[in-house]
Computed example of a mutant assay.
Amino acid sequence: MDPLGNLLDGVRAHTAAFCRVALTPPWGLRIDDQALLAFASPVRGHAWVVFDDGEAVRVEPGGVAIVRGPEPYTVADAPGTRPQIRVLPGNRLITVDGVELTARDVKSSTGPTILASGTYQVAGHVSARLMALLPRVVHVPRERIDSPLTDLLAAEIDRDEPGQQVVLDRLLDLALVAVLRVWLGEQEGWYRAYGDPLVGPALRLVHDDPARPWTVAGLATAAGASRAAFARRFTTLVGQPPMTYLTHWRLDLAAAALRGGDATVASIARQVGYANAFALTVAFKRVRGTSPSAYRSRAGHP
């Protein structure tokens, strides 16, 4: 399987939540629906994705922002606009004053900005591997998306016909793949290394079985190369020595598990290759500067 197929295999939308809103500046939506992935595309006008630490990304008409959750963020007409509407789990909409809104209240097509969005709400349908590798926002402009899928998704959101949810789920899957294919194709490091005949097999082994007690010598043997030649080529292509990459990969997977579920730190430690919760905590604090429990609390989980 090719690198993108390997990464996205098994990712499926199922009863994903969708929204199409017409907006007049100044407008702002506080996204607090705890979704693991959100797909936002302005059909008309532009939008800014604004994070609480001040990072902001402008998305033009037809462009797409894929936002990694579940931490809240704001989508607005400008970085400084205060949100007027909160989007809560289950696609529930309320004003900042607590007044409930319905889809009909925001679905008018008269606003200068129309924003189409869809979210993966169910943790089991988004792989930890994908969540660990994505930055918190992937932005791809319209001119770089060589596919009609985003336009089809935006159009389908506005329809009301039998079987619409199934169609939307499938279109969201395909649109996600189309956008990530563009973005991943532009990345350096592990994604391009996946296609290397020496480093690629080793990366797949590490990704498929992170809990195994890998060594440089063991990976080199599996790749059919000497230890020195393997380590040198791996570092050149990936940008990190093999064991450093393995550590970061395990901690990325642990972070995704902490964000997306209620598994204990001990069970997560075993899943990603650490003997116990203490060993994972030591590594997590050394690399990420915080403990797994503190990281989970900041991500909104008890």
Score class of each variant (00 low, 15 high):
298 R>H: 09
97 D>C: 09
266 A>F: 02
15 T>G: 00
163 G>Q: 05
87 V>W: 04
294 A>K: 07
170 R>K: 07
13 A>T: 10
190 W>V: 13
199 V>L: 08
7 L>G: 08
94 I>V: 15
204 R>N: 03
77 D>K: 00
158 D>H: 05
289 G>D: 04
96 V>M: 15
284 F>P: 06
138 V>S: 15
1 M>E: 10
282 V>C: 08
281 T>P: 00
104 R>W: 10
256 A>Q: 10
53 D>E: 08
34 Q>T: 13
137 V>A: 15
17 A>C: 12
252 D>P: 04
200 G>D: 04
93 L>D: 10
88 L>K: 14
211 A>I: 05
31 I>V: 15
78 A>R: 07
36 L>Q: 11
127 S>L: 01
48 W>C: 08
238 V>T: 02
98 G>I: 00
203 L>F: 01
72 P>G: 06
62 G>Q: 00
191 Y>D: 02
242 P>M: 07
266 A>C: 07
73 Y>V: 08
227 R>A: 02
184 L>A: 15
253 L>T: 07
91 N>M: 03
98 G>C: 00
243 M>G: 04
15 T>I: 00
84 Q>C: 02
224 G>M: 10
270 R>A: 11
44 R>F: 03
8 L>W: 02
133 L>C: 14
268 I>W: 10
32 D>S: 15
243 M>H: 03
281 T>E: 03
64 V>Y: 03
28 G>Y: 03
297 S>C: 04
157 I>L: 11
219 L>R: 10
209 D>Y: 07
43 V>W: 06
99 V>K: 14
186 E>Q: 13
223 A>H: 05
142 R>F: 09
123 A>T: 13
88 L>A: 11
285 K>C: 01
210 P>L: 01
120 Y>D: 06
